[in-house]
Design a protein around this nucleic acid. Structure first.
Lengths: 150, 150
DNA sequence: CCTAAATAGGACCCCTGCCGTCCTCTTTCC
DNA sequence: GGAAAGAGGACGGCAGGGGTCCTATTTAGG
């Protein structure tokens, strides 16, 4: 299904929460409490985010996590890629050997690439800051709408 | 993961094959043979396509399927929607009740909508004909690239 | 009228992959 | 030295997709 994994969803929530105090180091139990998510799950999310370099983990007592970059510099593509792997709608990509066993006469060879690129670009144009912005007077996502207009 | 279901992939292949003889009625076993896919699977795909109105099923002996519209008039969004349901990257959409149990303070409420719209629009701009076109001299998908450029 | 061919529509089981949890090791502050 | 917290991996439960099959209905042809 064309859905992103639940962990990706959690990651955006956690990142958004971290964005409210970009300088402070925040621990996993702390963020769990503030987001209302289960602590082990938040810990797992943060470990993956740390592995992807989107946050920086500080070990030891009084440790925690800090945003590696401001939310406005983190695109949705990066988060999705960290949890769901490279964005590729079908398995028929990057020269997957014997993708569909139709003997090379698939006819679809390489045709999905522009589609993947379109998705990637759409997600690249949206930052976590766009998703996390504290509700201003009224949220009218003109930028995103313009982005969506073919 | 951000992948579409395998049936959707099959559907594109089957539709592309049907596009090579748009007028002729083609049976499920016939299309299975021509695409190299398993016959029951092709039958299932065609039933779903028929239910969505993308192809027209003709019952009885010497029956088969005919494209309801030329491939150039069938967008990827329609095919994806037929198999994967409405395009919604997260469950937090269309007022899903108690989506994340954070007590309404989710802060993400409605924020994914522009993202979903962006994906939908990107896929709407691509037709099955774009994916199925028999390789011309060189396939340079200018249209799609332009579409992807934010 | 009867048979064969083909669609329509479910029902079913298997199996993959996600998800949530937990355990251990390492690091660092007090 | 002890406690707190991240790093890394392992593991079982479970939902959802997928492939298959069965039956009913329709229709062309002999």
């Amino acid at each position: 299904m064309l859905k992103l994994s639940r962990l990706t969803d959690y990651a955006v929530v956690v990142l958004a929460r971290m964005g409210t105090a970009p300088e402070a180091r925040q621990s996993a139990p702390d963020l769990a409490g503030r987001t209302g998510l289960a602590e082990p799950t938040v810990a797992k999310v943060l470990k993956i985010l740390s592995g992807s370099g989107l946050v920086v983990g500080l070990r030891g007592a009084r440790g925690g996590y800090v945003l590696a970059r401001p939310l406005a510099d983190i695109s949705l593509t990066e988060v999705v890629t960290a949890f769901d792997g490279p964005i590729a709608l079908t398995a028929c990509v990057d020269g997957a050997t014997g993708c569909c066993d139709t003997g090379g006469s698939c006819g679809m060879r390489g045709r999905w690439d522009p589609v993947n690129a379109a998705i990637r670009n759409a997600l690249s144009g949206i930052t976590i800051a766009d998703l996390a912005a504290p509700p201003p007077v009224a949220f009218i996502p003109e930028a995103q709408i313009r982005l969506a207009a073919e």
